[in-house]
């Protein structure tokens, strides 16, 4: 059987390749015939309104659709390896070191009764045999790169002791500490203040510069996509209506829905 470790050598394969993907919940298709490709180190923004299927697509790639959801047509390849064939142990080994994920509310996705440090050790030790000291050093180094001064205090904190913005940075740190090649981010800044949002977005771009991580970010904030993405995919009612470079799609939209979406974005006039 084709396992992931053998196919990692296919260097020329796209980082992520969706081919005519249809995703259904309870046998009802919610995403139809979706195809897109990501190059290593590329940032892809997936935009669209609530219920358009944006999050479903990245959940499918991560194998997080749950009991009721399934990819009913097409294939999803990560570096030439069909992730839909991955099961159990194989999938577990991929999630983390290969494909990482940041959720909208990291604070809620962490265990409330254990501090950040313990949860960090647990997650890293699932994938690598390293000393706790080394994990700690790597985490502090990442906090340092995000220009957070009191990393040691953050590690000792419980999720509820940290602000929303701080928890999101913890989410980025915990995903990046395994140095994934591909990072999925589902509305990572939507619950944050604008000032904090701007910082988190800059930090994510910085992570790409440092580690060459490809990022697929789901958001409804066109400003975020415009700032950080190379390519943008616009979804509407489960269909990919427009897909291309940020320049083409945002500054020269072709489809009626994209025009409406871009037209709805309120712009600040700085004079």
């Amino acid at each position: 059987m084709d396992t992931f470790t053998e196919t990692t050598r296919k260097e020329e394969a796209p980082l992520l390749d969706l081919q005519h993907v249809e995703i259904s919940y309870n046998r009802i298709p919610v995403v139809h015939d979706m195809s897109l490709k990501m190059k290593p180190g590329e940032i892809l923004g997936i935009v669209g309104e609530s219920g358009s299927g944006k999050s479903t697509v990245i959940k499918a790639a991560m194998g997080l659709l749950g009991k009721n959801g399934a990819v009913t047509r097409g294939d999803i390849y990560y570096k030439g390896f069909n992730v839909l064939d991955a099961k159990g142990e194989e999938l577990r080994r991929m999630r983390g070191p290969q494909m990482g994920m940041i959720f909208q509310n990291t604070g809620a996705s962490l265990c409330p009764i254990r501090n950040i440090e313990e949860q960090l050790y647990e997650s890293v030790l699932q994938h690598e045999e390293v000393s706790r000291q080394e994990i700690r050093d790597r985490a502090l180094d990442l906090f340092d790169k995000m220009k957070l001064k009191d990393g040691a205090r953050i590690l000792k904190s419980y999720p509820f002791e940290l602000s929303g913005g701080m928890n999101q940075r913890v989410g980025i740190m915990m995903a990046m500490v395994l140095k994934p090649k591909l990072l999925f981010a589902d509305e990572p800044t939507s619950a944050l203040d604008v000032t904090v949002q701007a910082q988190v977005v800059r930090e994510m771009v910085h992570m790409r510069e440092l580690f060459g991580t490809g990022i697929a970010i789901v958001t409804h904030n066109i400003g975020v996509v415009e700032y950080m993405a190379d390519k943008v995919a616009v979804m509407y009612q489960g269909n990919l209506v427009e897909y291309g470079t940020v320049k083409d799609v945002i500054y020269n939209p072709q489809e009626a829905y994209t025009k409406k979406l871009i037209g709805s974005v309120l712009r600040i006039n700085r004079g």
Binding site: E226, N269, G271
Partner: peptide, 21 residues
């Protein structure tokens, strides 16, 4: 709004305006 956005006086207001992506 035009006065404040185009000619912010306070440091915090400047940060707020710079954060609009």
């Amino acid at each position: 709004p035009d006065e404040v956005i185009q000619n912010p006086k306070e440091e915090y207001t400047k940060i707020l305006i710079d954060s609009v992506l």
